[in-house]
Design a binder for these strands. Structure first.
Lengths: 348, 348
DNA sequence: TTGAAAGCGATACCAT
DNA sequence: ATGGTATCGCTTTCAA
């Protein structure tokens, strides 16, 4: 491999200084058209490939890229529909600002830390459920703007989140409005530790995932209004995968046939519940009402289609990217959800 | 903002040379544990954040990232289910190799070229339908390994593609085996220019998209075996979106009620066809058989579920990444499809 | 094992 | 508008 042609070579060949040659590429207005052409000609002649990206980065300190990390989710980022919508919004804003998107990929926590340290980016976007995490610590050590999505991270430059309490409350209220009386909650994991199945008061109290805590609190707030105490509600933790929630739902319906309202803490979970209900012969929404949270496209294609509290995940991602890329972030944005009424529920 | 602590500061504080300090971080084995600890202590003391990524990159010439470009599809990469599966595979292999994934994002061709030139990556992965494209030219100017997915790019270091001819042929043969006699093809765009609606022989001949050419040739090869000439087959180009193909299908079925077999060139397209068929009162698969190509998950949830020629897009992405990251790429990998029989067709 | 010094390739400042 | 030059922060010879 021949030695790389560099700016100095071009400058010499064109009979100008290195600085002028640099300007010809980076700030064309600063150099007389005539000279500029001479420089370009010399560049073409020598086969100069344009300014070296890494050298430029070192000099300017700008990477031109935004790092995106899913600490809970490293290998699943491209599987979870909500994560993909976030990415779509992030990509949109980054495209708009001429910045690339760097996905931090790793197989485990330790590799993720290395990946974070190897990433040439100007800022980080983190989507996660809890903030006590070595990956997050590694990101913070880099001392670059860090915007968190969905979870407050101590010391973050900004946060974009959902009004999860309202989402939960409105979801539960809607099922009450549909006449449901006996509820089951299919919840996301409340802590980083895998734990499936029935949830007790202890685990609820210890829930380290803000999103889970808030949505739960919202559910119970609405149910309390109808005189239903937390202890009257079944509560099961699921993996955020439809297969898994379907299995949990099947068991739940078998052991507790009286259930007539299912609160799914995500659409992915709720979709599994609808599948299980249909298979077990329950009529949705007549015998059983189901509501999710998110509003993913797949919810349109269940049988019946899924009623849900819709959030604009694309916009959430876009806003987070915008914040990360802005000079002075430092706010918290809280987004709202809206009821998206489809077939899995029916108001009285 | 205080001046950044750098390696030299740490070295001085620890009373060692810069080189030794560097080794303490990058090649710990080369430095005596005792000295190493002294260096780390000094680093912690001074608040050293670890080696500067960009400086390291410039020195070593390694970026630790793989660039991914969807030239046809820039803003759209995170919408197309097949692109997402590719990304999943790419992410998996990159994680395995400790490399990050840089998504080149832009709003248009010109910005995309800039984005390519600003990306600090070690190699590029390109998914596209045609190779005569300024973005691709820009990538090639960088003189780094370039692996193309689905399309042969002249000068690429390697290519991972599908046996598209076989996919088309087997798809059409399957519908023949199901008893279909009057066919319509819902095709992907044959050229970079948007063009919807009926396709004529001219456009078929001019098709610059290899994937489209090959699948079409496959369809016609199978149909020829049943004595059906290309001119006996309706052929419409669609945007690769279910809504759009649904609209095209509705028109097609209205004007040509005799159609009993639809060859969808992608699952996204075929899904729209199923929707339109149901809405227009056609019984699938009894009155009308539909087959797609791809095997995306959404195909399981149509009514009826979509029969398709399945390809392993995740593996396709993984293989491409593996090739891009390998020392000596330089091959062409061709993947096969398999018939995935679901409800939208029924063999006699 | 450790130290000294030479780059990696470009940009930005300060003169002119 | 252009030239000269310090500098970005590190890794990697080459010697000792």
């Amino acid at each position: 491999m021949a030695k790389r042609v560099k700016l100095l070579d071009v400058a010499k060949a064109a009979g100008v200084s290195q600085g002028t040659a640099s300007n010809a590429f980076g700030k064309p207005d600063l150099v007389r058209p005539e000279v500029r052409e001479r420089i370009f000609a010399a560049a073409k002649e020598l086969g100069y490939r344009g300014p070296h990206v890494m050298a430029r980065m070192l000099r300017t300190g700008k990477a031109g890229a935004l790092g995106v990390v899913f600490p809970d989710n490293l290998e699943y980022a491209f599987t979870d529909p909500v994560a993909i919508e976030l990415l779509r919004g992030i990509g949109r804003e980054c495209a708009q600002q001429g910045v690339n998107v760097m996905i931090i990929s790793a197989q485990n926590q330790q590799q993720a830390i290395a990946a974070v340290n190897n990433a040439a980016v100007d800022a980080f976007l983190v989507h996660c459920y809890s903030d006590n995490n070595d990956i997050i610590a590694a990101i913070q050590r880099r001392n670059q703007p860090l915007i968190s999505i969905d979870t407050d991270i101590a010391g973050a430059a900004g946060t974009v989140a959902l009004d999860d309490f309202a989402a939960g409350k409105n979801a539960a209220q809607h099922l009450l409005d549909c006449g449901a009386k006996r509820f089951a909650i299919l919840s996301l994991q409340a802590t980083d530790h895998d734990h499936f199945g029935p949830m007790n008061a202890n685990r609820v109290g210890a829930a380290s995932h803000r999103v889970v805590r808030e949505r739960l609190a919202g559910y119970h707030a609405a149910l309390a209004g109808a005189g239903i105490a937390p202890s009257d509600v079944l509560h099961v933790e699921c993996d955020n995968q439809s297969d898994h929630s379907a299995k949990m739902t099947a068991e739940l319906l078998a052991s507790h046939p009286e259930i007539d309202g299912i609160l799914g803490m995500s659409d992915v979970i709720a979709i599994g519940a609808i599948d299980a209900a249909r298979i077990s012969g329950r009529k949705v929404p007549d015998d059983l009402k189901v509501i999710g949270i998110d509003g993913i496209a797949a919810g349109e294609r269940t049988d019946p289609p899924l009623t849900t509290m819709y959030q604009d995940s694309v916009e959430k991602g876009r806003l987070a990217a915008e914040m990360a890329l802005s000079e002075a972030p430092g706010k918290t944005i809280t987004l709202k959800t809206t009821l998206l009424l489809r077939g899995s529920s029916k108001p009285l």
